[in-house]
Simulated scan of single mutants.
Amino acid sequence: MRCQPSHFKKVYQWLKSQHPCLLCDSTSHRLLALCEDCEAELPWLREHCSQCALPLPKQQALCADCTHNPPLFSKVITPLQFAFPVDTLISRFKYQQNWPYGQLLSALLIQHLSYYFDEGGQRPDLILAVPLAKRRQRQRGYNQAQMVCDWLAKALQLPNPQQLVLRTRETVSQQGLSAKARRDNLHNAFQITQPEQVKDKHVVLVDDVLTTGTTCSIISGLLVKHGAARVEVYCLARTGKPQTVQM
């Protein structure tokens, strides 16, 4: 007597699987653990700056910051604004080890990127996570940006070399610092360990949330200095103006 169910039965059960929605706990008959009603109510990023993805009240090419002091990355790609309930999901993923929330938001980003590529968006050559300070990683036990990067790399079949970008020194938290103080805080804080891997490559940096973009801009400048042809940023969500951020 066979205890192992047939392949047909496995596939049938998978097709009939029901997931509780992670937001409202109702049954979702989809592969995503998110029902259609909750998906429709998410704070999708609509009008935004074409470079840094800052949410804007109306369509325009660039925000004021990117017009007068453009970041060193070419483009930010993200589907969501950092607003309720996305802010809560990211906080629980980031600080409370609730991996399913991070996986759900990463799945939404993967869907967004797949559509972007289908519409002619340029696929990158490799994908890298923004490194976390060693002290914070020891306290937290993981780097949430690296987890998102791993999920994206697997789904999009992109190289994801580890330890290519390192933090070389501890820095204070960026929260509450002015733009200049943020830049000063991160001066000489990163290192590219194998520059030959980024030369002439389209590189993507992955983070959970983009706030001011200072960290990603500094790392992008370092990658470009070592020969990267283009640097973009993928993130789960984009904040509004820094003064409105609650996290």
Rank of each mutant, 00 (worst) to 15 (best):
T214A: 15
T212Q: 01
I127F: 00
F84R: 01
C216G: 13
D208A: 05
S106A: 11
Q174T: 09
V209F: 12
W151H: 13
Q103Y: 09
D207G: 12
E47P: 02
P195V: 05
Y234H: 01
A237E: 01
N98C: 09
R138Y: 11
A179Q: 12
H187C: 10
R92P: 07
L31D: 15
Y95C: 06
G221W: 02
R46K: 11
S26D: 13
W14K: 11
G121S: 04
S50G: 02
A133G: 01
C216Y: 01
V231P: 10
N98S: 06
L126K: 02
D65H: 06
K180L: 14
Q97D: 14
Q111N: 15
H226W: 06
H187M: 08
Q157I: 09
F8K: 04
K199M: 11
C63L: 01
R92C: 10
F190N: 03
A133D: 09
V206A: 09
Q139T: 05
K10H: 03
Q137N: 11
V148Y: 03
Q175T: 15
E232L: 02
F8W: 13
V245K: 02
V86C: 06
T239G: 15
V203W: 00
K241P: 01
C235N: 03
D208N: 02
V198A: 10
Q51G: 05
G227E: 07
V204P: 05
V148F: 02
P43D: 04
K241F: 02
F117R: 00
N69C: 15
S114C: 09
E41L: 14
T171G: 08
F82W: 11
L34N: 10
